[in-house]
Amino acid sequence: MNTKKLTITAMLIAINVVLSSVIIIPLGPVKAAPIQHLINVLCAVFVGPWFGLAQAVISSTLRMIFGTGSVFAFPGSMIGVLLASVFYIYRKHIFMSAIGEVIGTGIIGSLICIPLAWIVGLQHFAIKPLMIAFIVSSMIGAIISYIILMMLKKKGILQRFL
């Protein structure tokens, strides 16, 4: 079972890193990537919180190295995938996982980025634009992942992964 989760996690990391260079919402030093949020919801449903957390850390690190992410990717993606997983485990509903991602990344993750901005020397970093960018980015990714997962569920494919 762990080999299956590890394989799915590795594939989602690869997809995340490659596709995150395609769609980016830039806001100063922040590079919000809806693909990260899409992958977070997929991880919440397919592999759960711990493999999802590993995906978020590895993906954020690789995105930083390749220049398609920033240090602000860490809190948003990590909290987003954990909350999406908890919501999914609690309700076993794909929609709740998507909501968990938006709350985790869009609201909590963006708030945690404020002290992080101060640490890296951005004392005048504005919370409202940051939160709006994170919410929009996480909503886009969550909606797309919800559509993908519902299509997989409708075709009976999702059950094979769970």
Rank of each mutant, 00 (worst) to 15 (best):
I147N: 02
T7N: 03
M11L: 15
S85V: 13
I79S: 08
G67M: 05
L42K: 00
R91V: 07
A56C: 05
I132E: 10
L149C: 07
G104C: 06
I135M: 11
I35M: 13
G48L: 12
A142Y: 06
F95N: 04
M1W: 09
L116K: 12
M131Q: 00
A98N: 01
M150P: 12
V17Y: 01
I15M: 15
R160M: 14
S137I: 10
I15C: 14
S110E: 00
F95M: 11
I58D: 05
Y146I: 10
I135Y: 06
C113L: 13
H124S: 15
K154V: 15
V81Y: 03
L82D: 03
V45F: 01
V22C: 09
L152P: 04
P34S: 01
S137R: 12
L19Y: 07
S59K: 02
V45I: 15
L12N: 08
I15W: 07
C43N: 09
Q55Y: 01
K128N: 08
V17M: 07
A142M: 07
A133H: 09
L152H: 05
L122Q: 08
A73V: 04
G80N: 11
V41P: 01
N16I: 10
V136F: 03
R160Y: 12
I58N: 04
L130Y: 00
V18Q: 05
V81A: 10
V71R: 04
A142N: 02
I140M: 09
K4A: 09
F51H: 02
K128D: 08
A14F: 10
I127P: 02
F66N: 08
R160W: 08
L19H: 11
I35Q: 06
P129V: 11
Q123E: 13
L82C: 12
M131W: 00
I135E: 05
P115G: 10
K153A: 07
F125E: 05
L130Q: 00
A126Q: 13
S21Q: 13
A84G: 10
A126N: 08
S145E: 11
I107F: 13
K154M: 14
I89C: 09
A14S: 11
I108Y: 07
